[in-house]
Design a binder for these strands. Structure first.
Lengths: 229, 229
DNA sequence: AAAAAAGGTTAAAGAAAGTGTAAAGGATTG
DNA sequence: CAATCCTTTACACTTTCTTTAACCTTTTTT
């Protein structure tokens, strides 16, 4: 089962797609505007995105480019525009498929499955964040194009943080998700691992990527300048 | 540059596609009938196939099914039929994309690039990886031109690893795919097989090809790596 | 500004995971 | 139905990772 994000302002169409995706056994999250879609994209992690072009707040084109700048998640554009120039432009700037409205639900379902099938084996499934680039399939992390080798737990931790930038992970959440075990409070183990990850990242950059959130846990530090302490 | 096979009986369209593909920098081979296309597919190795549906000799549907039975090569169907049932059926039976005639050449170009971009697929009779050369059809493995004889499970394991270099296979994935049976955790069997494969490979080379990923599983070791701990 | 609380770092002991050999147990085949 | 080959189990050994513990630093509270 995959988690799919629908970005579509029209309530009816959003509902229709949502139902369709549930029916073929996937989990759905709906966004009704560009910024909302981008926020969800950044905070959560999805296997595929269905993107409408005409959106309030921010156009689908802009969203596509923004998502492509640090992820190669499959994106299917759904649009009422049948303008061929637009279509080609979108496909060239990174959309994986382009479906014109009105669409047939079975065709949409089939095209979703094709994308999901492709991305399972494509060894290019990665997410970048600043100088970091992480591949879940290869379980590798690159810092400025140099590979750093992380152990199992180290990788799990960094993967969680990078795939959900902005999100603050409590120590308990981090522990339970990276270890898949109960967290029994007051444990320095996690700190040691965080320390080790930081040390490895520092071999290739001076930027600090893991931010400590006092009294709570950790998160990936925002890239934009002007961070507070 | 990729090698692309066009299977299309209409001379004019075949020529048009052929020119288009050359223009975007790929190599083209043209077939004008189903059987001819299949023969070329078997004899040569391509990165992608453009398949017309209405063909003399053998229908595009049949060809699709036949190719899919033993290959994951990206196949783009190009058809005059805009019948939605047909379209869905084809997409579900393994086509990667479906373009209806008349088509825009730029769109075709863009869709070809998308397929090539996501696929790591190779249709060669042999897959080579460094000094290893593996033939799925003959179920043989050569190391520096000397054949090593692997048992069924040994071959299945090495085949998986080599066909998806870089990808880390968890023990569970490896077991379930090589045995086609449920993995019930904590099993040393896989390790013994890995060990045996390594031993056989070592008869003819000093390079270590199978890398252990601690706590996870195994993968084929990168050929030119600069990783550090 | 001192005390208290939370986090950071290091090194080393201990736990967990992986390796390779050998032999037992199954399956297959002539 | 016996011989053979493959798979699995067992075990002693090696490697790597995780955790503990001690001590240090930073931040917050009083």
């Amino acid at each position: 089962m995959s988690k799919i994000l629908i970005i579509e302002d029209n309530n009816e169409i959003n509902g229709l797609l949502s139902e369709l995706i549930s029916n073929i056994g996937h989990q759905v999250v709906s966004a009704y505007s560009g910024p909302e879609g981008l926020r969800l994209f950044r905070e959560d992690s999805f296997s595929l995105i269905l993107l409408d072009l005409m959106l309030p707040g921010k156009s689908g084109e802009e969203i596509l480019v923004e998502m492509r700048s640090n992820s190669n998640i499959p994106i299917i554009v759904i649009s009422a525009k049948s303008d061929i120039d637009e279509k080609v432009k979108l496909l060239e700037s990174g959309a994986n498929d382009y479906i014109t409205k009105p669409f047939d639900t079975r065709e949409v379902a089939a095209r979703i499955e094709i994308q999901l099938r492709n991305s399972t084996y494509s060894n290019s499934a990665f997410v970048s964040y600043g100088e970091l680039k992480i591949s879940s399939i290869n379980r590798t992390v690159m810092v400025n194009d140099s590979e750093i080798v992380l152990t199992r737990h180290e990788f799990n931790i960094l993967e969680l943080l990078i795939k959900h930038p902005q999100k603050v992970y409590s120590k308990q959440e981090l522990y339970e998700q990276a270890w898949d075990e109960m967290y029994l409070g007051e444990d320095k183990t996690l700190n040691v691992h965080i320390s080790n990850i930081r040390k490895k990242i520092k071999e290739y950059t001076d930027t600090e990527y893991i931010e400590t959130v006092w009294g709570i846990g950790f998160r990936i530090k925002g890239l934009a300048v002007g961070g507070r302490r």
